[in-house]
Amino acid sequence: MRPILLQGHERSLTQIKFNADGDLLFTCSKDNVINVWFSHNGERLGTYEGNNGTVWTVDVDPLSKFLVSGAADNTLRLWSVSTGKCLYTWEFPTAVKRVAFNDKGTQVVCITEQRMGHQCAIRVFEINAEGDGTKQSKEPLYMFNPIGSKATVCAFTLTPNVVITGHESGKVALFNVKTGEEIDSNERAHSDVVTDLQMSKDWTYCITSSKDKAARIHDTKNLMVIKTFNTETPLNSAALAPNRPFVLLGGGQEAMSVTTTSLRQGKFETRFWHKVFEEEVGRVKGHFGPINTIAVHPAGTSYASGGEDGFVRVHHFDDSYFKAKPYGDLEIIE
């Protein structure tokens, strides 16, 4: 099917997220605005304005009530999804690079950048869902500084107070947020900076992408690498497709060298790999810059990709995607 082109941003995309129902798509970019779209037709529902710098990251809670965003203006903001109002703002010494809700939507974890003498910090906030949501505690529930290489991505795990992080060095680790203690780590998960980390539907495993041109599926319990997908281009994002045994990988050469090489050279395609066999099964092209972020509809019926070119492309899968059985009748558990 023809993709729906969402042209709501003036600058490159940083992260896109579907809500739990999959009817809404949140996109944020370097142009300081967060957009929300109806995912089925690409109509824009509204914007969340107020950030004074690149919005690096967004996440939405399971009930689609609250939205959190982290931006380069050193703020973490809580928004009301339905009204577009900013409910609360936390300020930090440095930019917020990553935010994520836990599976219940009661807590938010955020990573702040290591800069100007400040260390990279991971904070966890309790979200007070009572009332209109404007009454939030200013102080974080927990805060710690991960030792060693700075964290670039993070997410909660199923175990309470344990987060999984991806680091600049390529390390993937589990931290106890209460104590700041590193429970487990895989130093050689990747050989370059980890660019994305997305959880599976049941939160028992996750996929990471890295500039080292590989994406990997990790068991979130023991950080065992289950699968590896080696591509020929630096990866910026990796997503898991629910209900079908595929992973979606996106990336491309560095934005700074894009102008000097041809389109086909850039490898700006979304790559579909078989989750279990580790084989590439297909590619979808369209972006004319590297793909920065990919998100798949929670029901697995569509996916969206956001690129350095400033566009979001929403693709609804064709029937053939669901019917095709390129590897025969092997039953693969989700």
Binding site: D202, T204, I226, I332
Partner: peptide, 13 residues
């Protein structure tokens, strides 16, 4: 490969 994957998945689930 599928068997290995499925075994791991059932265990986790």
């Amino acid at each position: 490969l599928v068997d290995e994957w499925n075994a791991w998945r059932t265990l986790r689930m």
